[in-house]
Simulated assay, not measured.
Amino acid sequence: MHGTLSTVQVDPRIEASGLLDGLDGSARAERAELISWMLTEGFSVEHLRGSFSPMLLASRRLIGDDATYVSIRQIAEQTGMEIDLVRRALRAFGLPNVDDPDEQVYLRADGAALMHTARFLEMGFDAEDLLHATRILSEGLSNAAEVMRYAALAAVLKPGATELDIARGTEQVVSQAAPLLGPMIEDMLLVALRHAMETEAVNASERVSGTPLPGARMIAVAFADLVGFTRLGEDVEPAELERLAHRLAMMARDVAQPPVRFVKAIGDAVMLVCPEPEPLLRALLDLAGAAEADAEFPRLRLGMSYGEAVSRAGDWFGGSVNLASRVTGAARPGAVLVAEQAQEAIGDVDGIRWSFVGARHLKGIRGDTKLFRARPAD
Rank of each mutant, 00 (worst) to 15 (best):
T4D: 13
V10N: 10
D11S: 10
L19A: 09
L20R: 03
D24F: 04
A32K: 01
L34I: 14
T40C: 06
T40H: 06
E41V: 06
G42H: 03
G42W: 00
F43D: 00
V45D: 01
E46K: 02
F52P: 00
L56V: 05
L62H: 01
D65Q: 10
D66G: 03
Y69I: 00
E82V: 05
R91G: 10
E103A: 12
V105F: 10
Y106S: 10
D110P: 02
A113Q: 15
F120K: 03
E122C: 00
G124D: 04
A127E: 03
E128I: 09
I136M: 15
S138Q: 13
N143A: 08
A145G: 14
R149I: 09
R149A: 13
R149C: 15
A155F: 00
A167K: 03
T170C: 07
Q176S: 15
Q176M: 15
A177T: 06
A178K: 04
L189W: 00
L189K: 07
N203I: 15
R207M: 09
L213A: 13
P214R: 09
R217Y: 11
M218Y: 03
A222K: 11
L226M: 13
F229E: 06
L241H: 09
R243F: 12
H246C: 11
R247K: 14
R247P: 02
R253F: 06
V255S: 04
A265N: 14
D268R: 11
A269L: 08
V273T: 07
P277D: 07
P277S: 06
L281A: 14
A288S: 15
A288M: 11
A295Y: 00
F297D: 02
M304Y: 03
S305V: 02
E308I: 11
V310D: 05
S311C: 14
F317H: 12
V338H: 03
A339L: 04
A345I: 07
V349W: 11
W354M: 10
G358R: 11
G358A: 12
A359D: 15
I365E: 11
T369C: 10
